[in-house]
Each structure stands twice: as C-alpha cells, then as structure tokens.
Design a binder for these strands. Sequence first.
DNA 1: ACCTGAACACCGTTCAAGT
DNA 2: ACCTGAACACCGTTCAAGT
Lengths: 202, 202
Amino acid sequence: MRADAEKNHRHLLAVASEVVAERGADMSLRDVARRAGVGLGTLYRHFPTREALLDALLRDGFEELAAYGAELEGSVPPEEALTSWLRRCVAGAREYRGITTLMMAAIEDPGSALHASCVTMRAAGTRLLSSAQAAGVASSDIDGTDLFALIAALAWLNDQPSTSSRADHLFDVLASAILTKRASNNPSPSPFADDHSPKSVA
Amino acid sequence: MRADAEKNHRHLLAVASEVVAERGADMSLRDVARRAGVGLGTLYRHFPTREALLDALLRDGFEELAAYGAELEGSVPPEEALTSWLRRCVAGAREYRGITTLMMAAIEDPGSALHASCVTMRAAGTRLLSSAQAAGVASSDIDGTDLFALIAALAWLNDQPSTSSRADHLFDVLASAILTKRASNNPSPSPFADDHSPKSVA
DNA sequence: ACCTGAACACCGTTCAAGT
DNA sequence: ACCTGAACACCGTTCAAGT
C-alpha cells in the first residue's frame, strides 16, 4: 500500500539522520536499513544512491541557508553579511561529517542527486560575494566557485579531529583571505552602481 | 630465506607505488598483494598497516622537503622561502591523492606509522614560518600547526576534481592569508635581529 | 505497487598450516 | 624465518521471488 511506503520513507529518513550523526556521511547503508527494520532493497527503492539519501536529509538546510543569505543581504552591510553567512555554512556542515567530499564531486556532476542543492548554495554565496566585492570589502580575484571550494575546505578541516578545536581560528584565517580590503585600486564607491541581478524578495 | 624477504619488500613497495598513483592512498591492499604476486599475509608482515606502507613510500619525500626548507632558509628571503616551500609541499601531495586525511589523523596520533614524517614536515614549515614572521612578512597569528592544516586543506582541494584546475589560483588565495604583510605594527626591521635557531648547513 | 533477502563481487584483518 | 590463502566479518548493489 501507499501508506506503508510513505511510512517507510519517513522512518528511513529519521534513522538515516541518526546514523549520519553518529558515523558521518560514509555510514553503512546496510546499517541504516537494518536499524530501520527494513529490507535493503527498500532503502534502495526509496533512495537509489547515497547522494539521494543525503540530499533528502540536507535539502531543507540548503534552502534555509539560501534564505538566510537573502535576508542578510537586505539587512546588514555586505562584509558582515558575507561573514555571517560563511559562519553559518561551516556550522551547518559540522552536523554532517564527511559531506564535503561528496559536495565537491556533486557540484560539477549534474547527475548527482546533490547537484541542485550544491548549485543553490553556490548561487547564494555568489550573490553575497558580489555585493561585498562591489562594496570593496572582498577580494576581487575570487568567484563563487572559489568561495564554494573555500567553504568546503574549511568544513573539511573541521571534520579532522586534529583541527576541529581550532575551527574558529582557521575560520578567521580563511575569512581574512576572502575579505581582503584592497588598498586603493577602486577610487570612488563603484562607478557602475546598478548591476543586472534582480533584487526581488527583501 | 632472508634474501627472499628483502626482494618481496622491495617489490611490494614498487607495486604499491604504482597502485597509489592509479587509485590514491585508499587503494585496495588486497590489490597490491595480488599485483605483487604475493600472499596477503606477506603484505601485512612487511607493512602491518596501511600507514606503514604509505610511510615507506613517503618518508624520503618528507625528508627531501625538510632539506629543501633548510636550503631555502639559507639562500633566499623569508617570504620567497616560505612561498616556494609551500608550493613544493602542495605539488608533492598531488602525487599521493587522498593522503591528506591520513596525515591529519597521523599528526596527533603518536602510534601512527606516519606520525614521525608529519612531525618532520610540520617542524620544517614552522621554521620557515617563524623566519617570515620575524621579518614581518607573514601573519603573526598563525602557528606551525595552522600552517600544516592549511597545506593539508590546499592539498585536499587539489584532490577534488572540481577544483584541481584552479589549484594555482587557490594556492595564491591561501598564500595571501598566510603572507599578510601586516600594516605598521612593527615599525623598524625587527628589533631582535638574532633569533636562537641554529643556522647550520648553507 | 511494494517489500524481502539471497546472491555476487568486493573489502580489511587474522591466523593455522605449510616450507 | 618466512609465506600462503582460507576464514571471518563486513561492505555496496542488484534482482528474482514473494505479497
């Protein structure tokens, strides 16, 4: 019946969430099925790949992250907006150990179930970065893809037990590379005041 | 006989080197034994852990890296010395995909066969960093452990197919975070001209 | 429609048995 | 001394068989 399938789906997600929290994104899928009291094939039916399962767990978080970015953009100066958003990205990744390698693979593999989420996140970061660059508070020689990579690198560092205690400090170091207030190459506050990106929402 | 064992040892290393080049540091140990035409137990006898095998492959490279650091220190200004050394570290890591996670674990696990090599490398980096800091060309709020982590992060980024093409660019971004010429906190060229580290070699 | 679990082809690691 | 490979306990993935 359809109701059974839906119940399985929800239960699998709940169990997977626990297992990922305990073991990280490279958890045993067998273990998830086992703990959910469900056949292995049922897990594969609902989530044909590991990425599909993780995306189901992460999608909401990615969208919240994008929304948070849009909110910051309308309420706070560009430098603070970018910094706060980065901080939240890294904090979010901390909940899902081992996700970064998967994300780096997914962002350029349109076939991956995580692709869309990664693209959403990169787009949100790119907007904040552009604003900060236009305001002259972010280095102009990095782009959204670089930013995505730097966030991933930072999240990866946080996954490593030997550096997780220095997470805040390494964040500052990396952030300083992004938020380079460049000396005096741009004289006045941006000669082209209007860009072409729609400023919808708020 | 002893001669047989030595031959096996060398052959295993040669084969392992090939397999690591093809598959990365997470290669199948079974595959190494198979390709070497040797029983699985023989591989484990010679190299009781994956780390032991990798250390045997990497040890020379680490020592060369340390020697290169010492050489640079005696022949080139501090900023250039640190940059060149970092470049070589990252280039070296490129030959051994997937090694960075293992190294991050090994540096704080004295029981790991890779521990000594990691400590050697960190020490070499620390010396170069200190010189650069004393000369006022490197940020004073990072230490050797941070440097080690940043090198690992950069090497990890290079392992990711989606960023390997931007390796040089990301190197520059990270390097700029390390080599921050701090404004004017240190007025004159270093009040303490002599430090206590021995300037041996040349 | 949906679920199950055996089956297949892999791992890492250990250890009795051979030479 | 040294080597071998079966044995054990795991994987991911697929798919015939059941309801």
